[in-house]
Each structure stands twice: as C-alpha cells, then as structure tokens.
C-alpha cells in the first residue's frame, strides 16, 4: 500500500501516464475533553502545547488517510502536488484539508 505521495509535480524515474484529477481528504476536529483540559492548563504556562499539537497532528493524519483512500478507490497509484490547508471553525474547531493530484505512473524507460 506504499503508494508514492509527493509535494512535487513529477516523480524522478517515473513517467505520469494518466491524470485522475484532484483527490482530497477533509476532516473537522475539535480537541477532546482531556486535550482541552491539558491544553488549557498548558496555555497558561506557555511554551509548546502538546495536547493541541497532538490534536492538529491527528487531524492531519486523518485527512491524509482519507486522501489515500480516495486515490486508491479511483485506481491511482501515486499522488503528486500534495498540499495541506487548514482553517478555523469557531472556538476550538479546526478543518484540515489535504489535496493532491491522483495519477498513474510507470517507470521511465
């Protein structure tokens, strides 16, 4: 299942033979109660707020999982031009969007 995913638009040594269009993974997350509690306490002290970092990492991971699902479902074997985008959704909530172009690649001869 290790499909190549890259932020670049080409993959060295491979040739893109087919474009499937844009694939995306989208997730909206708010901190869980323990994350909100720990994060709130840590925010008072300052420094790195691990609980909120975890929440953002989980949101990105889940958006990435959905992106791969989408690409594999339509028959792609690689994703190029991967980008992440995030926005605020009211207090505490965050929306993470992960998108890229699903392609079919084959080794260059």
């Amino acid at each position: 299942m290790n499909i190549p995913v890259t932020t670049t638009f080409t993959i060295e040594g491979y040739r893109i033979t087919r474009y499937f269009g844009i694939v995306r993974g989208i997730i909206v997350r708010a901190p869980t109660i323990p994350q909100r509690m720990l994060g709130g306490l840590k925010s008072i002290i300052g420094g790195r707020v691990g609980a909120f970092t975890d929440m953002c990492e989980q949101a990105r991971q889940q958006a990435y999982d959905l992106l791969i699902d989408h690409a594999v479902a339509i028959g792609a074997n690689a994703i190029v031009g991967l980008r992440y985008d995030a926005s605020d959704l009211g207090p505490g909530g965050t929306e993470v969007l992960c998108y890229g172009t699903a392609v079919q690649i084959e080794p260059e001869r």
Partner: peptide, 16 residues
C-alpha cells in the same frame, strides 16, 4: 504510536 512517524504509513484502505 502515531507520533513516531507522521504521516503514519497507510497499510491498506477500505476501498480495497
């Protein structure tokens, strides 16, 4: 654990 490697390798997808 998720924090060891991010993004974690997706081993398989439900579309399979």
């Amino acid at each position: 654990p998720l924090d060891e490697a991010r993004p974690t390798a997706v081993l398989a997808t439900p579309s399979q």
